[in-house]
């Protein structure tokens, strides 16, 4: 169980998150949704301990995450990665095995097997010798998902994993979510989809610096909540949907 209590984060003088509290049990795929600048990435980074927390507590299975960092897999936003970096698909996924190998040692043969399995699961094994810059957006996201799988973590924090992906990747990612859920894992996914796609999540957390609503997609995406988070009505939002390509939630 991931427990967040009264979490506040101020980032370079700006109050980015205020008094956020929620719990996530195991076997759940939770979606984190909210307008641009709502603090979705900040929340994920705060949970990971990548930015200082002003106030509040973050616990996983009763202990702080600092004590069990290996149990948390993180997929960063794609803009955070230099896709021209000279590295192949195989070696990106192998990075997930760095802490398991320990200092001064090369990864074990078992790690090699785990990486192979993860790549096969996301259907990227045949492209393992490609440099990451030579892949399509969807393939790149699948490589990072494989990296998260290869870490064999219990808690998955994914920052907009479906940005710039194709339909095939979307379906594959959705399948993998279901599998991970059935294995008792906890997934928190910041997302920018809208409408039907939100039904894939067991639970939604609607965020706009504070937690506006949390619960099943139908309960959360009410016109009142959307109005509060986005400052626009549900009907207007739906009407303008095809035009507002830059409007991410």
């Amino acid at each position: 169980m991931l427990e967040i209590q009264h979490l506040s984060v101020s980032y370079r003088g700006v109050q980015a998150l205020q008094n956020i509290s929620f719990n996530l049990p195991s076997s759940i795929v939770a979606g984190l949704i909210g307008p641009n600048g709502a603090g979705k990435s900040t929340l994920l980074k705060a949970i990971l301990g990548l930015i200082p927390v002003q106030q509040g507590q973050i616990k996983y299975r009763g202990a702080t995450l600092k004590q069990q960092q290996r149990q948390v897999a993180y997929v960063p936003q794609r803009s955070q990665i230099d896709w021209d970096y000279p590295i192949t698909v195989w070696n990106v996924v192998m990075m997930a095995r760095t802490p398991h190998a320990g200092w001064f040692r090369s990864p074990s043969r078992m790690s090699g097997e785990i990486v192979k399995e993860a790549l096969q699961r996301v259907e990227m094994f045949d492209l393992r010798h490609r440099q990451i810059g030579e892949l399509s957006g969807g393939q790149q996201q699948r490589v990072f998902l494989a990296k998260a799988l290869a870490q064999q973590a219990d808690l998955f924090l994914l920052d907009e994993p479906l940005t710039a992906v194709d339909k095939k990747t979307e379906a594959l990612v959705s399948e993998i979510y279901t599998e991970l859920k059935s294995q008792g894992k906890t997934l928190l996914v910041s997302c920018h989809e809208w409408g039907e796609a939100l039904q894939h999540y067991d639970r939604l957390l609607l965020l706009d610096r504070e937690l506006i609503a949390s619960g099943s997609p139908d309960c959360v995406m009410t016109p009142e909540n959307i109005q509060r988070a986005y400052g626009t009505s549900w009907h207007r939002r739906r009407f303008h949907e095809p035009l507002e390509t830059g409007f991410y939630c």
Binding site: Q69, R70, Y74, Q80, D82, V92, M95, T98, P99
Partner: peptide, 11 residues
């Protein structure tokens, strides 16, 4: 390659 990822995993 990924400073934040490295930090997240505990390096």
């Amino acid at each position: 390659f990924d400073r934040l990822g490295a930090q997240a995993i505990g390096l």
